[in-house]
């Protein structure tokens, strides 16, 4: 049931970015989407909606916690925050991602070594 977009992220990438964003601040869904969009400078084409299944997965694994609150525009929203398990998971994911990236980079640029 995966819908292909022009540039597909690898599984877990979105989650990783969400966790990283939530590490520094608590955010609700919309703000989170805007933040990721802004920081990535629109390099990544992410449907805003795909954020929500990812958030549900994180909720289920108890990597993030959510509570209902009020946004700056005075709207009833669900504000997400990183749990201890989430922080740990993020650390682990990031390091394994970096290793993977390094591996890929080496393969892509063999002549330089």
């Amino acid at each position: 049931m995966t819908k292909t977009t022009q540039r597909d992220l690898f599984p877990g990438a979105l989650e990783m970015m969400i966790l990283r964003t939530l590490k520094s601040q608590r955010l609700h869904g919309y703000a989170l989407a805007q933040h990721i969009k802004r920081t990535s400078e629109d390099l990544l084409q992410i449907e805003e909606g795909s954020l929500y299944p990812a958030l549900q997965r994180l909720l289920k694994q108890e990597l993030v916690k959510a509570e209902w609150g009020t946004s700056s525009t005075n709207r009833r929203v669900r504000i997400y925050k990183l749990t201890a398990a989430g922080a740990k998971h993020l650390q682990h994911e990031v390091s394994s991602f970096e290793r993977m990236l390094e591996g890929i980079t080496r393969v892509l640029a063999p002549g330089e070594s």
Binding site: E47, E48, G49, S50, Y52, P53, L55, Q56, K60
Partner: peptide, 17 residues
């Protein structure tokens, strides 16, 4: 448009549970 398919996203979110 920017959000994507609302029904689909909702369903994907539900499937998690």
């Amino acid at each position: 448009r920017e959000f994507g398919n609302v029904g689909l996203m909702e369903e994907k979110g539900r499937v998690v549970w």
